[in-house]
């Protein structure tokens, strides 16, 4: 009976003590350490690749930043750019608008003196332009030809043309009345 109890005690204490694993020096900690090293092994190449990528992209990013500082005015940013900035002039905002310069370049075209040649064909063209209220090149160029009768742009001026027609063609009518 005593021997059996002693054997039970020995096996019980041995098994119970074997189940105890100290947290700091047990096999579980030794098995967990390689897992942490694996994380480091994965993280180190990633960090190296990120560093190489950052070094490769750094010049481009710096160039992009310098290019971005050019259009800024010196007063808006607190930093002084090392590169010489173009002088700020009021004409610079008008430079990138070529559409407005087109009418100024087309200004010599109306200089063809249509009123100086009072032919009926030209007057008929002017009457058609006056009847349509749509925007055309002719009204924009009108201020340069203010003294001309077509520069009024009013429908009354259109009646000028047809009023002359009877005068020009009055000779046959007079002959008929006669």
């Amino acid at each position: 009976m005593t021997d059996d109890l002693e054997r039970r005690l020995q096996s019980l204490l041995a098994d119970t003590a074997a189940a105890v694993e100290p947290a700091l020096s047990g096999p579980a900690l030794r098995e967990a350490r390689p897992a942490r090293r694996r994380v480091v092994r994965v993280a180190a190449p990633l960090l190296a690749a990120a560093a190489v990528l950052a070094l490769a992209l750094a010049p481009q990013l710096l160039d992009g930043r310098h290019a971005g500082t050019h259009p800024q005015q010196p007063g808006t940013s607190g930093k002084v750019s090392p590169l010489p900035l173009p002088p700020a002039s009021p004409t610079t905002p008008e430079v990138p608008v070529p559409s407005r310069s087109a009418p100024t370049l087309a200004a010599p075209t109306p200089t063809a003196p249509t009123p100086s040649t009072p032919t009926p064909s030209t007057q008929a063209v002017s009457t058609s332009g006056a009847s349509t209220p749509g925007v055309s090149v002719a009204p924009t160029l009108a201020p340069s030809h203010a003294p001309t009768p077509t520069s009024a742009g009013t429908p009354a001026s259109a009646s000028v043309g047809p009023a002359r027609l009877p005068t020009t063609t009055s000779s046959p009518a007079a002959t008929q009345s006669r």
Binding site: L13, T16, A17, A18, V20, P22, S25, G26
Partner: peptide, 23 residues
């Protein structure tokens, strides 16, 4: 400590039946 800590903690655990108290 590196050699005997596990055995010491096991012995203390068998005495007090508490892992935390044994540590």
């Amino acid at each position: 400590v590196a050699e005997h800590q596990a055995g010491l903690v096991r012995y203390a655990y068998l005495l007090c039946h508490s892992y935390a108290l044994g540590e």
